[in-house]
């Protein structure tokens, strides 16, 4: 491969999805936030809202 090819390749914009998948700490945030909100927080709120028996 020539130097010109390399330069062209370097100039190619990185696709958005690849940028996302290359960003480990953004993935870490998504991977912790999604289950925390949809499973844990929502679930605990439902349990906390059960009326107490009198």
């Amino acid at each position: 491969m020539s130097d010109t090819d390399n330069t062209d390749k370097d100039k190619e914009p990185i696709p958005g999805m690849q940028s996302l998948l290359d960003n480990t700490f953004l993935l870490l945030f998504i991977g912790v936030a999604v289950p925390s909100v949809i499973y844990t927080i929502w679930g605990v709120m439902e349990v906390a809202n059960i009326p107490l028996a009198h």
Binding site: L27, I30, G31, V34
Partner: peptide, 12 residues
């Protein structure tokens, strides 16, 4: 990536 987003919810 699908695992990262959704796999953990199966705990339910």
């Amino acid at each position: 990536f699908l695992y990262i987003c959704f796999l953990l919810l199966a705990s339910a």
